[in-house]
Each structure stands twice: as structure tokens, then as C-alpha cells.
Design a protein around this nucleic acid. Structure first.
Lengths: 341, 341
DNA sequence: TTGAAAGCGCTAACAC
DNA sequence: GTGTTAGCGCTTTCAA
């Protein structure tokens, strides 16, 4: 870390006090246009960059926000991370990573120890950690600002989401429009709120179309490839559905794998659809019909929200909702109807 | 960032000076066993965690190392990241991320600006950035310690790698052992050193088996799925090879996609193999024969090496080589020979 | 083997 | 609108 030019150098160069430089750097009010320009010029001329350690020490902050995640889907995560980094960087903040295993014992203690150790100013929570109520309580008690991604959570925690229920409903309507009435559904783990929402949307579409739901066609997976394959093996035994809606792409890819093994033609003998539009959806054969979420933008938004919370520019008030909904898109590909891909 | 207990509290509790506490925390020599124990007990009792900002300010370091990467393969990256984070965390260091696009103009300036701004104490470079000579020069000139991952680079830069040539050679021998003599090869981008090494291994195996190389069967891709598919379309037109070795899994998956479209049976009519053992290799149909690298462990090792370089426990001396080779593993699956997967 | 003093570069609180 | 002063919590330097 080669830092040489300090705030004193800039102040001297601009002929002002260090406090004024500090004001300009931190975009505070009460600096005349003229002074600001002088200081900016000095910063430019000297190529000055504030020392984060000194800022943090004096300001009692770390200029760091954390993301806690369970590595379920690398594609989802990397995209989310880049969105978050982009926003953090623009605000001279850093992003600290806390990878965990959702199922591990002592999860809450692990995360809280990390929060204390890394001294982050706030925390972004991704699914399924968004659904861990004890963790939310512990963070709240510790006074750490939190923003949830892709999940509503419980209570008043700010969140950046898509309308999962509506997305799943539209996906189901797509299958119904293709003539399917015998539709299998692979749920995610019960503990994930996304599992519930997607299943709800599925049920709503069926109900709307007057199609009775067949309990034997609904099974549960773990959101990963293997569990999708296993679930499909159960669904495809004996009398079977003509379409399967898997709650995410990884499981849908597992369904394709199982169908291939059984020699079932896709989409002629079986339509398969997923959710998330991860790269795997385009890399399997045939490509998966799925739902695209603007993940990177959601990462931007979540980080931005958290920074505002930290700066107390936005306050979480009792009774006010801080849920921000992003749009989604139905991507129709070869796994549900004959196309060129 | 709720930090309350400071080094003074610990010193008071243990009945020593703050310097002694500092010595214990930093594992310095010249502290008696008895004093050390007293201090450790106090740290434990008060649940003390050193303030990174203060450490950084006083010690003129950021306690941060950076990874620069182009998001080519999320799976590879997430695994590498977790390895690096693990090691960093154990050393009370943080990991800062710098995502870039290898092809962008002003890449070197971008990275150097980030290095100055984030004030990292050292940098880890992943492929293909390891092959960007101007960047290596700029980092060296700035006096920033660097470690390369998965690439030899040029000159004396420390690196953590696998023997790519040998791995590609063994993969090719596997195909030859299955009876193939007409083998197609999809290279990676010429600018990546991995592309060269893997191709070399391929050629070495053919030469060793007395098989002449057919120039028409060697094409170049960009290490991504789409380029693999396009390359396969070319290779599979007219007289075609009986096996295709793609230099990474993403391209191999693209080959499978193309073969499926053309109705070519895998592995009966065409054997396909990849490289990297990314999750996609198990998620396509049939599963891909590939080479597994211990990515996470390489992440550990690279971070560890960089920390030693920063602490000057290890020095890069002229004439000494600092290349550390990890083992690899040939994973045989259904895309090259009939198996159950 | 241990400690005292100085100061890293910045922000906060308050003065002007 | 601008400047002064006093630390933030630690490592460094030097002395004991």
C-alpha cells in the first residue's frame, strides 16, 4: 500500500485547511463553489486518495460492508457480487465476503463473530440466509444495518426482490397455454421462502385455469442438480406428468439429465422449465425455458440501500415497508416448446 | 462496526503495557511464556479484537489483499475465492475483489488505479490476467507483491499451478487408449498460456503414439460455451473426428450441445472430453470426462504465498524459481466411454 | 524481556 | 463558509 500524498499535502497545495479538504472529499455542504474547485484541482494535481484506514479510525467506521452467502449457485453469486462491488466502489466502500454453510451448527455465532471481526458497517444477506430468523434477530440486536436480497424475510427488514409468486404464475400459464394439464412441480427446501412463493404462484395459475392439483406430482428438492435428478426419477415413474416445473435451473437441469437417461424426448414427451436464467439454462440440451431476474442490478440496489441505511439517509420506520421490487422476464427456450435452441 | 474493547483495556486487565499486548497479538518474539498466557487470558476474557483500521494506520498497511479476475468461469472463481478467503481470514487479512474485462481498453490503468485506491498490500492474479505482461510490469514497478494462479506467467513471478501439459497429455492418452486416432482439438484463446500448454500436451501424446496431427481438426475457441459450440459445428461438418478434446469444460459442453443438434450419439459416434471439472461437467448429458484441479487448495496456497511475500518471510530472489505445482486427476465419465453416468 | 512516547492520516466537535 | 484542536487504536522507535 503505497500512500504518500496526504490530506495535509492537498490542503497546502490548495491553500486551505485540512478540514476543508475533508469536506470536499466527503461531499459535505458548506463549501463555496470556488473553494471546492481549488481543492478538487489540488486533489487531481497530486493524485490524492484518502487513506481508508485513517478515515475508518477517525470516523469509527470500517468503510466495509459484508455479504453473507451460502454457495448455492456460483453464477447467481458472481453476478450479485459484481453488482454490489460496483456500487460499493463508487461510494469508496469495500465489500467483505462471508461464505457459510446454511446447515452448519453454530451458524449464527459464526456470522456474528465474523461481523465483529471484520468490523463491517452493514450486512447484505442472500438466500437462504435471509430466512434464518435467529440471525436476523442477532444482527438487529447488535445494531447492524441489514438488507435482504431476493427474499422478503419477516418483519421490517429492507429487501430487494422480484415478484416470485407472479413469475411462477406466469411460467405455469405458459405451460397451460401449451396444452399441459398434468404438470409436475419440484419445490425447493421448505425453509427457503422462495420455495413457498414459487409454489404459490404455481398453484394460483392452476386454480385460475380450473385445473385440479395432483399431490403425487409435487415433490421436494434441495435446489441443486442432484436433488432435481432424484425428484425427476420419482415423477417419471409409472403414470407421469407431461410437463415439469422445477423451482430453479439447477434442478431443472437434473430433470433433463434424468429424462435423457430414461430416453424421454424433450420437449415432445416432456416439457421442462426452470427458474433463474443461470448460464446452465442455456448450456444443457435442450436449452431451458426459465425466468430471468436482473441479478446484477439487484446487487447494485441492495448495496446502495445498505449504504444509505448506514449513512442514515434512509431510516427504517415502524410501519413503513422497504421492499423494492424488480422486474423479471419469461425466457421461452427449447425445453418447453420446439424452437431452434 | 461496534468496537468497544481496546488494546488499553486488555493491557490494564493483564497488568502489562499495550506494547506487550501488541506483541502477543502479532506473534512477535521476546515475550515470556508467562506474560503471553496472561495476555491471552485477558484477550479471551474481554473478547478483544484488534481494530483493523488502527492497525493499518499505524502499521502503514491495509491488511487487505486483492484478487483481480475476469469473470470467465463463476464456478472456478467462487471456489478459488473461498480458498483465498479462508487463508486470509486465518491471518486476519481481508480479500478485496477487482473484477475486470480482459479485453477492455485501459485495463492496466484500471487495475493500477484500483490498487492505489483500495490500498491492497498485494495482488493475486488469475487467468487470463496472469498473461498480461504490461500489467505484471506495472505492478512490479509499483512495488506490489504479486502471486499468479494457474499460470506460469513470464519471468520470476511466484505462481501456483498444475502441470497443464502433462494433464492434457494424459487426457489425450485416455482417448488413444479407447482406440481413437482421429481426434479433434479445440484450443483456447492464443493469448492464454493455458491454451498453449494444453495444446502442447495434446501434441506430445499424439507424437508419442505415432499419430500424425491433422491440422483441419484443430480449431480455436474463446473458452466459453458459445465458442465451443461454433468450433464443434466446424469440426463436425463433412469428414469428422471420432473424438473431440476441448480445452475446457464450457467449450466441451458447447460441443455436446452442437452434437445433440446434429443428432450425433455421444459417446458412440463421438467422444467428447473437457478440462477443469467444473460443475457443468456433471450437469450436461452425458457427463463430461475431464481433468480435476484442486482449485480451492490452490486458492489457499496462493494467498498464503502472497502473505508471506508481504511479510517478507519469503523473498523472490534472482534465479530462484517460485513455482508450486499441485496434483490433478483424470475424471472419466460418460462422454468418452459408456458408463452409468 | 518489557515499557514510554510519538505519531500514522483522518474526522468530529466546536470555534470563528 | 472556514479553521483549530483533539483524539480514534494501534505500531514503531527507542530506551530501560
Amino acid at each position: 500500500m503505497a500512500v504518500s500524498v496526504t490530506i495535509d499535502d492537498v490542503a497546502a497545495h490548495a491553500g486551505v485547511s485540512i478540514k476543508t479538504v475533508s469536506r470536499v472529499v466527503n461531499r459535505e455542504a458548506n463549501v463555496s463553489e470556488k473553494t471546492r474547485n481549488k481543492v478538487m484541482a489540488a486533489i487531481e494535481a497530486l493524485n490524492y486518495r484518502p487513506n481508508q484506514a485513517a478515515r475508518g479510525l477517525a470516523g469509527r467506521r470500517s468503510y466495509l460492508i459484508g455479504v453473507v452467502y451460502d454457495n448455492i449457485s456460483p453464477n447467481y453469486l458472481i453476478n450479485l457480487q459484481s453488482g454490489m462491488i460496483e456500487t460499493c466502489h463508487a461510494a469508496s466502500y469495500g465489500l467483505a465476503l462471508c461464505p457459510v454453510a446454511y446447515a452448519e451448527t453454530g451458524l449464527v455465532e459464526h456470522v456474528m463473530a465474523w461481523v465483529r471481526h471484520s468490523q463491517v458497517d452493514g450486512v447484505l444477506l442472500t438466500p437462504p440466509l435471509t430466512d434464518c430468523a435467529p440471525l436476523l434477530v442477532a444482527l438487529e440486536k447488535a445494531g447492524v444495518p441489514v438488507v435482504l436480497v431476493s427474499s422478503l424475510g419477516a418483519g421490517q427488514v429492507p429487501a430487494v426482490v422480484i415478484d416470485e409468486v407472479e413469475a411462477a404464475r406466469q411460467m405455469t400459464l405458459h405451460l397451460i397455454a401449451l396444452g399441459h394439464t398434468e404438470i409436475g412441480f419440484i419445490k425447493g427446501p421448505a425453509a427457503h421462502s422462495a420455495s413457498q412463493s414459487r409454489y404459490e404462484g404455481f398453484k394460483a395459475a392452476l386454480a385460475g385455469a380450473g385445473i385440479a392439483i395432483n399431490g403425487a406430482y409435487v415433490v421436494e428438492g434441495r435446489f441443486d442438480f442432484d436433488s432435481g435428478e432424484i425428484a425427476a426419477q420419482r415423477l417419471l415413474k409409472g403414470k407421469r406428468p407431461t410437463a415439469i416445473f422445477a423451482s430453479n435451473d439447477d434442478m431443472a437441469a437434473g430433470v433433463l439429465h434424468a429424462a435423457h437417461k430414461l430416453g424421454i424426448a424433450i420437449p415432445e414427451a416432456l416439457a421442462v422449465v426452470g427458474f433463474d436464467d443461470t448460464p446452465i439454462s442455456r448450456q444443457v440440451w435442450p436449452s431451458l425455458t426459465t425466468i430471468r431476474q436482473p441479478i446484477r442490478e439487484m446487487g447494485n440496489h441492495a448495496a446502495d440501500l445498505l449504504l444509505q441505511l448506514i449513512a442514515k439517509k434512509v431510516l427504517v420506520e415502524d410501519g413503513s415497508s422497504m421492499v423494492f421490487q424488480h422486474g423479471f422476464e419469461l425466457k421461452v427456450r427449447g425445453s418447453s416448446q420446439k424452437t431452434s435452441i
